[in-house]
Amino acid sequence: MPRSVQNPQVTVFVKEYASQRITMEGAINKPGIYPISGKTSLLQAIAMGGGVTNLADLQGIVVFRQVDGKKMGAKFDLKAIRAGSSEDPQIYGDDIIVVDESGSKSALRRFIETLPVFSFFGIF
């Protein structure tokens, strides 16, 4: 007759899990796709990419993300975050962080100029 175990105790160890990824581009020392797990702030993400280059516009950091199926962006001032006068926003999987260059005449520059600093995510 088959025996059944009553009140079995099972332990599961997670050896590996699929992390989420972020993309960093622009005036970043090591642009690319990086895995994140747990809570990650904008400063932490930029540190993963080796920091910003000496050509970076510290007031021209844009985070793009999908919100309710729409691509949205928010502008951040890295200098103010570093000084502690502004909050360091949380970064989520699939976010794209773009660090603009000082004096750039790009479409991104024109987009950045339309966003107020530390805006809520607006439709792009």
Rank of each mutant, 00 (worst) to 15 (best):
Q6W: 08
Q6K: 15
Q6T: 14
Q6A: 15
N7C: 04
P8R: 06
P8K: 03
P8I: 02
Q9N: 10
Q9Y: 03
Q9C: 05
V10E: 04
V10F: 05
V10A: 08
V10Q: 08
T11G: 08
T11R: 12
V12S: 07
V12A: 11
V12P: 00
F13E: 13
V14I: 15
V14P: 02
V14Q: 11
K15R: 12
E16V: 02
Y17S: 13
Y17Q: 11
Y17N: 07
A18E: 11
S19Y: 00
S19R: 09
R21V: 04
I22E: 00
I22V: 06
I22T: 01
I22C: 02
I22Q: 00
I22F: 00
I22S: 01
T23N: 04
T23P: 00
T23I: 07
E25F: 11
G26N: 10
G26Y: 05
G26R: 10
A27D: 11
I28N: 07
I28S: 08
I28C: 07
N29E: 12
N29K: 15
K30Y: 07
K30L: 10
P31A: 13
P31R: 12
G32R: 03
G32Q: 03
I33A: 14
I33E: 14
I33T: 14
Y34M: 09
P35D: 12
I36M: 07
I36Q: 07
S37H: 15
G38Q: 07
G38N: 08
G38L: 06
G38M: 06
K39D: 05
K39S: 09
K39Y: 02
T40C: 10
T40G: 01
S41K: 07
L42F: 02
L42E: 04
L42V: 05
L42P: 04
L43I: 04
L43A: 08
Q44S: 14
Q44L: 09
Q44W: 00
Q44N: 10
